[in-house]
Nucleic acid binder design. Structure first.
Lengths: 170, 170
DNA sequence: GAGTAATACGTTATAACATATCAGTTTGCT
DNA sequence: AGCAAACTGATATGTTATAACGTATTACTC
């Protein structure tokens, strides 16, 4: 089976105008938080974050490498991008979608929190959501039934988004 | 940072006696279900499932390849093992831990259901659990707030297990 | 039991994702 | 300016997963 999301893997062209303004906001907010936290949003890190914001879908590390290569004349090696991604994720500006090996920009990096991601199998779009009830249930399940202390819940919901349902996809 | 689970990556030696009898049960149950479903639990598929049951931790595909190579004199290529894993996961006998790129045997393959996995960062052990409330919350969140139809929730909780907490690990 | 279609497996190559290591550059501080 | 820390560049390599195509086994029909 070939999904639409596979046929158009991680194209960078899908950025909408709305996405653009969100991107500006997101990057500006990250810049502010970095100042407040005393960490450095370098040109590279900022550019990677912009690319994530501008994309309508989670981007793989190698898609980012390609994008950066084409705009900087210099080649960009995997470690460079992975280091930037490490920074962005550790500061809460981005998050890895484990089930896709891909990365997305995160809204609300101001509070440390864990996100639920809804990822469409058809179009590949991902939407972030917060639900304290889910997080709490998971922490409780682990603690009560296993004596387990949760540090990082990974919640990624695969399915079909509204638009793709409307378009008649399964 | 180097975790204990990384220092002893996926050794196959950790199978306990309890694990062994569970393994027998699990494989026997899978065999029965295959008969009922009219699908084939071939020697290879069964052996992969046994290896998963016998391991105290999620196993990577390449760990399985190594294990199979050492017991069958013939070499076993990646596609062979990935096909077996595809079969086992599609029948509900095993599951992929997305956040680890590793695979575990699943209890209760008789009902189609989704699992929550609790994975210890220290020792690497993974415990499966079912919680309809979490599943339902996720389905509702997606449906009500996004018009999203959930097909497969991926819920993997990283943290510290009871034993590792007792042993004084963070 | 021979023919045949479907399913599963073997084999080679390669794609996709990620990290180790060490050298060079920039930044912030005194 | 001088120095240490932080960041980036560059090469190589490790790890995970799939494409493509051929062979073998199984199940089914006659």
């Amino acid at each position: 089976m070939v999904r639409d999301a596979d046929r158009h893997p991680e194209a960078l062209s899908g950025a909408s105008c709305a996405g653009q303004s969100q991107a500006n906001d997101g990057v500006a907010q990250a810049a502010e938080l970095c100042r407040a936290r005393g960490v450095r949003l370098t040109a590279l890190r900022q550019r990677v974050l912009e690319l994530l914001w501008e994309s309508s879908r989670p981007l793989g590390a190698y898609a980012l490498i390609e994008a950066l290569k084409s705009e900087q004349d210099r080649p960009v090696g995997p470690p460079t991008v992975y280091r930037a991604l490490d920074f962005l994720t550790s500061e809460g500006f981005a998050s890895k979608i484990e089930s896709r090996n891909a990365y997305v920009a995160c809204a609300h990096p101001e509070r440390a929190h864990h996100c639920i991601f809804f990822i469409c199998n058809e179009c590949g779009q991902s939407v972030e959501m917060e639900d304290q009830r889910v997080e709490q249930l998971l922490a409780e399940d682990g603690a009560r039934r296993l004596g387990f202390r949760m540090t990082r819940p990974v919640v990624e919901v695969a399915g079909t988004c509204r638009d793709c349902i409307a378009a008649g996809h399964p």
